[in-house]
Design a protein around this nucleic acid. Structure first.
Lengths: 232, 232
DNA sequence: CGATGGTTTGAGATATATCAAACCTCGTGG
DNA sequence: CCACGAGGTTTGATATATCTCAAACCATCG
């Protein structure tokens, strides 16, 4: 009867903190929602009306300036949490990059539920602390790294995070080829570069034999060590 | 007998979540420590052995590359929390910019205490969520803004955060002049620029009559509206 | 097959970095 | 009290990475 029973991220998402009774109560206030690429779930500056868990797909978090420049400030994957609990405003937009499925809660409902379930809040705290560490680390890339270093670091990050579930463990064949959930422009928006610079750096890595680009969105890492050297 | 009784940040820090009995228990596992400018409390990559509350002073959080480039990824003020609870590693160094006083806990002690006090974890979660929003917002500056926009946004941010306790409220005379806790190099390390570019932008703002620079570290905002326009 | 949207390539402009020198400011010691 | 020195800062001249503008290219889909 419960969505949660068949939820593929049941044991990775913050829901893992709950026993089956609690889960049933959470299930009662949530609902599933599907998103298509380009579709947004939350908009920067809006009131924080809902939060969600990512069940499937990849989504971007982004902010922009008044004159249209955009910066992607985060990328979320299955089992990640999105939205701003315990806060009035959503600080950034959330938009699907691929087809995606999310488990949505009204923020008010979620806040109330979370306050009654410290173990859930604890999981959320751990996740938020990790995300903060990751985000701050990314600031080094934006503030201090060259275009080629950014691209190399980005590809290595992607190769780690886009692993198919079931293909975990140390870097193996599976990690060497993957499909980016980003267009070239979106890669530029992640790295704080222009689309042309991104394109040139990709072709340079290809010409240097460090990667191969079998199709627009596919990347195959040929020389991971070299890529790590170039990541600075 | 308890440090907390006389603690000036008692009601702003996460400790505000605790009643006096709980506070006494927390007090028992903490101790005060003074830091001089330049002195570090935590080092990037080290095991996470301690966490702390800032009682007085300003500290920077920073990371760097192997070849010595540095990026300041956060700045903390009185009542802010520092360190990485519930985690093995410290992701960034923490260094005093001014004389500072912190209330230090061993991470293990703090973790155990926090897990038993959900209201404390809740406060910490709220703080961490806000910090994550703030950090992501800063990524827009690093990824997409010009040097002059960065400097303007930085000065506005400083003018809001360096207000003396007791001088709150809407922008007033008190907000217009303040002393930066940063050297020019440190401003550069916050903004992802070089010291020369920072210096040139400061003098440009001064020549344009937007700010005045009565001394090396002192900034007086003469035309806040103009500064806001330039912040992009 | 031609249109469309995304991508790559090219040529040139420009903001910022780099290198180098001059300049303050402030504390120290003669 | 002044000269000196050291650290930090400003200013200048030049280099260069990245951006900008523009055109060619390529896949995909009707």
């Amino acid at each position: 009867m419960s969505y949660c029973d068949t939820c593929v991220v049941r044991n990775q998402a913050i829901c893992a903190a709950l026993d089956s009774n609690e889960l049933q109560a959470l299930n009662a206030i949530g609902r599933r929602r599907k998103l298509e690429p380009g579709q947004s779930l939350l908009w920067e500056g809006e009131d924080s009306v809902l939060v969600a868990n990512v069940i499937d797909g990849v989504l971007k978090l982004s902010t922009g300036t008044a004159d249209g420049r955009e910066q992607i400030v985060g990328v979320v994957y299955p089992s990640d949490f999105i939205g701003r609990p315990f806060g009035k405003q959503t600080a950034h937009s959330v938009t699907a990059l691929t087809d995606a499925t999310v488990c949505v809660f009204s923020r008010a409902d979620f806040d109330a539920f979370a306050r009654e379930h410290p173990s859930l809040e604890h999981k959320l705290l751990q996740r938020t602390l990790s995300e903060l560490d990751r985000t701050r680390h990314w600031m080094l890339l934006l503030g201090r790294k060259s275009a080629s270093e950014r691209i190399a670091a980005f590809l290595l990050d992607m190769s780690e995070r886009l692993v198919q579930p079931g293909c975990e463990g140390p870097p193996s064949e599976a990690h060497q080829e993957f499909d980016l959930p980003f267009s070239r422009q979106q890669v530029a928006d992640v790295l704080g570069l222009t689309i042309e610079t991104v394109s040139r750096q990709f072709t340079k890595l290809k010409n240097d034999g460090v990667i191969d680009l079998p199709s627009r969105r596919t990347v195959r890492i040929l020389d991971r060590e070299e890529l790590e050297d170039r990541a600075g």
